[in-house]
């Protein structure tokens, strides 16, 4: 029995699959958010140095992770769409951009609100902060470029180029704290060394990271389905869908 790997690469079949998966991811996201926030605020102890202000970490770090992670995913789908000319891949890339931009903004926003009490300033032209700001402009540039081009297929190609060019910015953000050693502290969580955080704090942050990931999948799947309908409105299956919807 040959598995047809490409069954779900057709917009029509992906539309129904995404429809079934979206509730699954949104429920998981909601449950993980509740668990993460509960542990973060009611189990994790007070920090000896920052007292309670450190609790911003439970949203700041997951948002920063997601801003970089979603950009890489977006660039990969854009590259696949460009290379194989598969329009569904480009649709997914287009669907990821707004969520990625939101998490980048949240990383900058929560960072500034954490920096004010701890560093005494909302903003400083620090290597990491500046490269994260560039990431936000990249996301906005991607969305603006795609919106500026009428033909969706040409917009996909142009978007893919800007997304791929911007990929170099991701390692810069990640290693900026090591290379330039400016104000922002180094990586607290690494897969190689032993954790430098208290167990409950680390657990809460990881759960919140997973929650943001599930949330992103749910929102991106929902937005992809809308984009599929927008671009396939002339097809038979959409008009049939219309008949029943």
């Amino acid at each position: 029995m040959a598995i047809n790997w490409f069954k779900y690469s057709s917009p029509a079949s992906f539309y129904s699959l995404a429809g079934k998966m979206t509730p699954l991811f949104s429920i998981t996201a909601f449950a993980l958010f509740v668990a993460g926030l509960y542990i973060g605020f009611f189990v994790a102890p007070t920090d000896f140095q920052q007292s309670e202000a450190y609790r911003i970490i439970f949203i700041h770090v997951p948002a920063a992770w997601m801003s970089m992670f979603l950009y890489l995913i977006m660039a990969s789908w854009a590259a696949i769409g460009l290379a194989f000319n598969t329009r569904l891949s480009s649709m997914i890339a287009t669907a990821i951009a707004p969520t990625g931009a939101m998490f980048t903004f949240l990383a900058l926003w929560t960072g500034a609100l954490w920096g004010k009490p701890m560093w005494g300033t909302w903003w400083v032209w620090d290597a990491r902060l500046t490269s994260e700001l560039i990431l936000l402009f990249l996301y906005i540039g991607f969305m603006a470029l795609q919106a500026a081009i009428d033909d969706p297929r040409r917009a996909d190609k142009a978007g893919a180029v800007i997304a791929l060019v911007g990929v170099v910015n991701i390692p810069i953000i990640y290693f900026s704290v090591k290379w330039w050693n400016t104000l922002h502290q180094g990586a607290t969580v690494s897969l190689t060394q032993s954790p430098k955080m208290a167990a409950t704090m680390l657990t809460s942050m990881l759960i919140m990271g997973l929650a943001c990931w599930m949330y992103s999948i749910a929102v991106v799947l929902m937005r992809t389905r809308t984009i599929i309908l927008e671009r396939e409105r002339h097809t038979m299956w959409v008009s049939e869908l219309q008949g029943t919807a």
Binding site: S51, E52, A53, R55, I56, T110, L113, W114, P117
Partner: peptide
């Protein structure tokens, strides 16, 4: 004492 900053972050998020 950091309520403004913590809740400012979480509310906007």
């Amino acid at each position: 004492g950091y309520g403004f900053y913590v809740w400012g972050s979480y509310l906007v998020s």
